[in-house]
Amino acid sequence: MNSVLLATAARLFKPLLLLVSVFVLLRGHDEPGGGFVGGLLGASAYALDAVTRNTGSARRKLPLAPHVLLGAGLLMAAASGLPALLQGEPFLTAQRYEAALPFALQITLSTVLLFDAGVYVVVMGAALLIMFTLGEEQI
């Protein structure tokens, strides 16, 4: 599919889609969204690239190889269970840390977010690995 129009649109859409995907991930705990949808959206940003041009160029633009993403995501998700062990609680029990920032800002860090981010990275990595692998077959 070598459409100039689509290719240009894709170039504009990609950063936007990536941004949206991270937004969807972050708001997932309170509003519809989360790691699964976020990761899929992130992958589709690159998938668009793959469809409009070719998988090779999409792959080159990716800062990390998909299988690295897979491993990193799984590690993140699993690592989010470790703080609970330090507290003597069962593996993966959610932990929350409130941190006060300057200018009266509150920030809440939680292992749940780390876990969901791990899911995001795994799903994105898996979807990309699949797209790239199967897409290359036809060329």
């Binding site: 699964f36 979807a127 692998t133 199967l134």
Partner: peptide, 18 residues
């Protein structure tokens, strides 16, 4: 999760078919 896993399984089946 079933939707996402279903996607993974479908992709695997496709790879196998190919």
């Amino acid at each position: 999760t079933a939707i996402v896993i279903g996607f993974g399984v479908l992709a695997f089946a496709l790879a196998l078919v190919q």
